[in-house]
Simulated assay, not measured.
Amino acid sequence: MKKEEKIIVGISIGDLNGVGAEILLKIFEDSRMLDFFTPVIFASIKTMTFVKNHFNLDVNLNSVQSHNQVLQGKVNVFNCWKENVDISFGKEDPKIGAYAIQSLEAATKALKDGDVDVLVTAPINKSNIQSETFKFPGHTDYLNQELEGDSLMFMVTDTLRVGLLTDHVPVKDIASHISPALITKKIETVYDSLKKDFRIRKPRIAVLGINPHTGDNGVIGKEDDVVMRPTLQKIKESGKLVFGPYAADSFFGSNNYKNFDAIIAAYHDQGLIPFKTLSFGQGVNFTAGLNKVRTSPDHGTAYEIAGKGTADTGSFKEALFTAVSIFNNRREYEELHKNPLAVSKRKRFEDQKRA
Rank of each mutant, 00 (worst) to 15 (best):
G215Q: 11
V226L: 09
L232M: 08
G239E: 05
V19L: 02
A206R: 02
F280E: 09
V324H: 03
S66E: 15
G314P: 07
D261S: 09
L34K: 15
D197M: 14
F50C: 06
S31Y: 07
T189R: 10
L272C: 12
V85I: 13
I11A: 04
E335A: 14
Q282V: 08
Q145N: 13
T47E: 02
L16C: 02
T49S: 05
S176I: 02
I273H: 02
T295K: 05
V162N: 00
E22Y: 07
F89H: 05
I11V: 14
A206Q: 06
V324D: 03
N56A: 10
M48W: 11
A306E: 02
T166Y: 00
T295A: 10
T231C: 11
K258H: 04
A100L: 06
E4T: 07
L61N: 05
P230W: 12
E105A: 13
T313S: 14
M155Q: 03
D192Y: 06
P137S: 13
R201A: 13
S315G: 09
T166K: 00
N17Y: 01
R294G: 02
S254H: 04
N76Y: 08
F349P: 04
L143H: 02
V51E: 01
L152K: 00
D117F: 14
G300K: 10
A181F: 13
D192K: 09
N144W: 01
E304L: 06
I87V: 11
K347R: 13
V77F: 04
K338C: 11
L147F: 05
K345T: 04
F78C: 05
P39E: 09
A107C: 09
F275T: 02
V284L: 04
N60Y: 04
M153R: 06
I174P: 04
N285F: 02
G20D: 13
P340T: 08
I23E: 05
I264R: 01
H213I: 00
N60V: 01
K195A: 11
N125I: 09
T108W: 09
G163L: 05
I129M: 06
W81D: 01
L24A: 05
L57Q: 08
D216I: 10
E304V: 03
V293S: 08
L320W: 07
A262R: 03
E237C: 10
I13S: 12
S296Y: 03
N68R: 04
P180Q: 14
G307I: 11
G215H: 12
V324A: 12
L164P: 03
G283W: 03
F252P: 03
A306D: 00
S315M: 06
